[in-house]
Amino acid sequence: MTSYLLVDHVSKTFPPAEGRGDGLDVFDDVTLEIARGEFVTMIGHSGCGKSTLLNIIAGLERPTRGGVVLEGREVTRPGMDRMVVFQNFSLMPWMTAFDNIRLAVRAAHPGWARAEVAAHVQRWVDMVGLGGAESKRPAALSGGMRQRVGLARAFSTEPKVLLLDEPFAQIDALTRGVIQDELVRMWSATRNTVFMVTHDVDEAILLSDRIALMTRGPQAKLAEQVEVKLARPRRRADLIDDPEFLRLRTHILRFLVEGSLTLT
């Protein structure tokens, strides 16, 4: 298989505190291949380094060993081909929602005229249900609305890979479902390649084609990859009593509770 995005034997060791000792091996020798248009999610306990791995793919951190290859080229620096949706939203607080998205669209399309950029931004504002709130600053928006801005900012630039770093962790449970459905809709429309990190099992099954399971850190390893063969489009209401959904859910939960302990 020629993979679109290849995480090739990546290890990350944080330097030891005060410069002594061996340092902390967060995860070790992770290899993951993602095909074009695939939605892959990584699940693991806190501290298994999944967000660190996402940052390495984004180019925001460097791996200690190994490397990341996108479309045959190694990535070493951040770039517009890998947009990140951050857990803490990371919106510019001095800009309106509209301007936050526009900053990204202008960067992605430097040749576009002002009106063209504005029209494109407005399309995404409407797509994520931000209409009416686009002239507000992030501080005046709820967590759910802020992450809508974050998603619109990432999707509107049409990156090769979308990196979602626990995008719904800081959003209340009721809103989370709504925005997950919106993410499904946007992803169905664009068929982006997505790498997501989460510790929410239901969310992972609802959204993913494949789920990668990490053992507990430190020295976490990629233990297992689970294919999600549920038909799309998936609806939360149908999944609740779907036997395949329940089987996957039990399998992953059992792994998180027990398996990760025996495998280390």
Binding site: A58, L60, P78, G79, S90, L103, A107
Partner: peptide
């Protein structure tokens, strides 16, 4: 750090 990370991902030129 987050704001600078976003700027780096968007590959903004130095003046921008």
């Amino acid at each position: 750090r987050d704001y600078l990370n976003v700027a780096a991902i968007l590959q903004l030129s130095w003046p921008r």
